[in-house]
Structures are given as C-alpha cells and as structure tokens.
C-alpha cells in the first residue's frame, strides 16, 4: 500500500520493471494529469452516477424484500430467501454475459417482455443515456441479496411487542415501520450502505463485459480507467488513479457514517 503511494508519485512504466533505478519521481504530476484528462473526469462522473443511484436502489430493494420475508409471509420463506440470494454467489463476468444477451434490442428477453405490455424497449447498451441504467439494473439484481440477508438478521432483533403496542395505539403499518423498525435498524443500514458503496465505487466487470466502457465512454468507470492505463504500461499513473479511488472510498464511508448517525 505504501509502495502504491510511492509509485503514484513516479513515472514508472512497464519497461522500468527491469531497471527500477531509471524511475523518476515526478511529484504530483500524475494527479494533475488525471484531473486534467476529460476521459478521467467522465469516469469519475460515471462512477458517481453508479454509486449515487445504485446504492440507494439496492438498499431499498433489499430492505423491501427483507421486510416482506420477515413479517409479511409465513410459508415458503426459505424458498424466496434462497432464490433472491442466488445471484450474489455467481460470477459477475458470467451474469454480465447473460445480461448482455437479455438486453439485446431485437431478440433480447427484456425487450420482448416489455413488448407484451406495449412498451417499445430501448437499445439498452447501445444508447448512451440507457447504458448506465442497464448496468445499475444488473448490479441491483446481482447484489440486493446480500443486503436482504443482513437486514433479515437485523429485523430479528426488532422487538415484536413494540409493534403490537403501537398497533393497539392505532399506528398504521407504515407508521410502525417508519418510527420503530427504521430507527432500530440504523446500524444495520449503515453497515450495508457502506459495504455496498465500497463495492460500487470499484465497479469494473460490468462495463468490461457489457459495454467495454462505451458507448461514448458513458459507462467507463474509474476502475476501468485504471486498468486501461495499467494495460498501456503507465504503472505510476495507474497507481495514482487507484489512490484517488482509495481516498474516495474513505471519504464516502466517512460521509455515510455522518449522515446516518446525525439523523438520530
């Protein structure tokens, strides 16, 4: 980790592997170069888009599924839990291949199903304004199961007699959820949002397989940019980008801690 910090201040390139002493320290040049590169700025915006929309969506779906399974139903709970969790254990590369096929404009399953209800589905992965939503949709599908399992465990700790007392006092289901369940679940929600956020900040496989960062760089993530620069042999530069990602991870984590703590 310290080595990566050092490398990020140098102009290390692939040929320097054999001659480590020819590396020059270039100070902050890598960082200013990154911030001056429009493709990198685009990658930052894309990553922000993915995180800001993707994390709340994933959390919302996970929480809804957990609440439904916890109190709504009594039978078949295990079946639903198993089914919803299944995508989590699968390789992102493999499911991305499958999703690319599902999202095909003319013969994909998703547009076919949309056609049944009279909606003319878009060119999901080929249209720059739909490409990112497609990726977010797939990421939510793949990841909400983890949050759901952790929320389910958290919901077990919410005392049911509080709900009963509130119900006797005439509180609606929504009021009880809002004023009893949510406050007690705050630490769990914090945990899930931090881990999901850290994962989403680094998203890589999804654009690699689905779109290769396109169309028009609309899905190029910061991790993908790092990998590309690494592929070009710009190791020092790639290391500095990865350091920016690391700092962002730390900052986003700190912000989430702040937000969820202060609402108390």
């Amino acid at each position: 980790m310290l080595q990566s910090l050092f490398m990020s201040f140098t102009d290390t390139r692939s040929r320097d592997l054999r001659t480590p002493f020819s590396v020059d320290v270039v100070g902050l040049e890598n960082y200013t170069r990154a911030l001056g590169d429009p493709v990198f700025r685009k990658a930052m915006l894309n990553t922000a888009y993915f995180v800001v929309v993707g994390v709340p969506l994933t959390l919302l779906v996970a929480l809804a599924a957990a609440v439904a399974l916890d109190r709504g139903i009594t039978r078949l709970r295990g079946v639903f839990r198993l089914g919803f969790y299944t995508p989590v254990i699968t390789s992102i590369v493999a499911v991305a291949v499958v999703w690319r096929f599902l999202l095909e404009t003319d013969y994909g399953l998703i547009n076919t199903v949309l056609g049944w209800v009279g909606v003319d589905g878009p060119n999901w992965l080929g249209d720059p304004s739909w490409s990112m939503p497609s990726l977010i949709l797939m990421a939510t599908w793949r990841n909400f199961g983890t949050g759901m399992i952790i929320f389910l465990a958290g919901l077990q700790a919410v005392p049911w007699n509080l709900h009963e007392a509130a119900a006797i006092d005439g509180a609606s289901a929504w009021q009880r959820f809002r004023h009893i369940t949510l406050p007690l679940m705050r630490p769990t929600i914090l945990f899930v949002s931090v881990t999901t956020g850290i994962g989403y900040l680094q998203f890589f496989e999804e654009p690699f397989v689905l779109t290769n960062g396109g169309p028009l760089n609309s899905t190029k993530s910061m991790s993908m940019y790092t990998y590309e620069q690494f592929g070009f042999g710009n190791y020092g530069y790639a290391a500095s980008i990865s350091y920016i990602i690391f700092v962002l991870v730390a900052v986003v984590t700190a912000i989430q801690f702040r937000l969820l703590r202060e609402e108390k």
């Binding site: 990566s4 690494f230 290391a239």
Partner: peptide, 17 residues
Amino acid sequence: MIPGVVTFVPLFVLVAN
C-alpha cells in the same frame, strides 16, 4: 478496508519482479 483495485498495480510489480 483497502480495495483490491488500489493494490493491484504495485502487487503486479512485486509479482513481476
């Protein structure tokens, strides 16, 4: 806390050496 994408470049240099 450190994500894999942060360490892979120096780790690669290490493994390459």
